[in-house]
């Protein structure tokens, strides 16, 4: 910026300051404005200092029915009462047993030879025949 510009800017600034209307600072009741402003802000400040139960209480007083309904829904969801039937867990669908385990489960009295390490095919066939008879 040149010196001439700087001088012109200064002259312009002085001209503006001399002739633009000054804010009427003496005409303002500052105490009243301060009081109005802090009063308007008080609810917002209280919201910041309130404990959670105070906030909950104040919310309930504003809209008790909504709060009560929300609480009921939360309770139902938490206890699972209102939950629809859910499909069995995927792991249950894919669970499988060997023939020996299935036979041992259904025929506990035949389980000893079947689950033994040295169980023969004959033992399994006998158990199967027995299982068939039990089913029929």
């Amino acid at each position: 910026m040149t010196g001439q510009h700087s001088d012109e800017d200064t002259a312009m600034r002085e001209l503006l300051r001399a002739h633009a209307p000054e804010p009427p600072l003496l005409g303002v009741d500052w105490a009243a404005l301060h009081a109005r402003t802090t009063a308007a802000a008080a609810p917002l400040l209280r919201r910041r200092t309130g404990t959670w139960w105070q906030l909950l209480g104040s919310a309930a007083s504003r809209n008790q029915r909504v709060a009560a309904a929300a609480a009921c829904i939360s309770l139902l969801l938490a206890t699972g009462v209102a939950m629809p039937d859910r499909p069995a867990p995927a792991v249950a669908q894919t669970e499988f047993r060997t023939i020996e385990e299935e036979l041992a489960f259904n025929l506990p009295y035949a389980s000893v030879p079947l689950l033994a390490a040295d169980a023969s095919n004959g033992d399994v066939i006998d158990a199967l025949l027995l299982y068939d008879r039990e089913e029929w």
Binding site: L25, H34, T38, A42, R47, R48, T49
Partner: peptide
Amino acid sequence: RVVRGDAEAYGELVSRHMQRAFSVAYR
């Protein structure tokens, strides 16, 4: 302090900047 809900601090903040804020708004 105001963030924590301190009304006194808020009042002080208002006092400190009220005149300048008024002046700018008046312009």
